[in-house]
Write a protein that binds this DNA or RNA. Structure first.
Lengths: 172, 172
DNA sequence: AAACTAAGTCAACAAGGCTGACATATTTTT
DNA sequence: AAAAATATGTCAGCCTTGTTGACTTAGTTT
């Protein structure tokens, strides 16, 4: 309320016209993606905080469940984080027996990552509210649009990384 | 030979079957949302890091541009963060003259937030790659599906918060 | 034997969330 | 008029999750 932050009135340089679709197309889709993703991730967050895990644990656990036997390098490539970042949460997932490591059969330097029964259960519990939200949204907006929505979201992904999606089972 | 191998097999608690759509429906949409959002936000990140801003600045600047004159409380409600978190980035946006504050005309406790020309320019520069990505994805997946995609994403948002979306101009 | 590779680890740092406590105007209620 | 409530700002400290850089160990490739 003092000096530096005082509101200036003499040089009124403010813009009062809203940024609109005329300035940049599809602003409504930009913010819909923001809101949809915000609420989509809020569901599992509620479960995670009860067991002192965060979103990082969720992502790691999710992909290990989606592709059991994934190596550390593969996981890093999917998540696009550094191995030091991964190490922190992966260690916790292993310590809490949600995930186990197995020395790679072909290349013994590699570590294959697998969920345990406990890890599978948690992954499912985290996926369920998201599944429900998606099912309800599909219902509400017309189930016949499913292919279109999948196709759009896939087209939003960088072309060189769509292979990652196809490498997951039953995700065609 | 019953030793190591035998023990390893019986104690082997790992799950090797991939989590699939049979376990929870729409896993493919769960990961598509993850990948799409990841790449969608990566575009503006490249611009932001050049000027030492982050995603938090982007979100604040975006909504101030979308609804000039927004108060601090409104912004907090949209972003779902605390005022302390907002203060940090908002202060920087004000100091760098991307945003100005004006004392509320009706209620003088309020601070209306407006972009400056500089702030509008930056918001546009950040929106453009996202607009392009969306336009290209719509093209690729069939422009006739636009309404369906908008409808789906809106249905993904918590019902009590869809009013936020409608309160933005030209976002019907 | 040497070079490369996969993974793990230590240390330090930054962004951007959070809580709690308190200050200052201003408006609303009593 | 006084008291209470509200909108905003600010100080201080904490947590998660990302980053870089340097180095180790084990195993594979050349």
């Amino acid at each position: 309320m003092t000096g530096a932050n005082e509101v200036k009135r003499t040089m009124d340089s403010r813009i009062t016209k809203a940024l609109s679709n005329e300035d940049a197309p599809d602003l409504n889709l930009i913010e819909l993606l923001f809101f949809a993703y915000r609420d989509f991730t809020a569901d599992p967050d509620l479960i995670l905080e009860k067991i002192d895990f965060g979103r990082a644990h969720h992502r790691v656990l999710y992909f290990i469940n989606r592709k059991p036997g994934m190596t550390v390098a593969e996981l890093l490539d999917v998540l696009k984080i550094t191995k030091q970042s991964l190490a922190r949460v992966l260690k916790q997932l292993i310590d809490t027996e949600h995930v186990v490591q197995v020395t790679g059969p072909r290349d013994r330097r590699q570590r294959e990552l697998y969920p345990t029964a406990k890890g599978r259960e948690l992954a499912l519990a985290l996926a369920l509210p998201q599944s429900r939200r998606i099912a309800q949204a599909l219902q509400e907006s017309g189930p016949e649009n499913r292919r279109a929505i999948e196709s759009f979201l896939k087209a939003m992904v960088n072309p060189d990384q769509r292979a990652q999606i196809d490498s997951l089972p039953a995700a065609g």
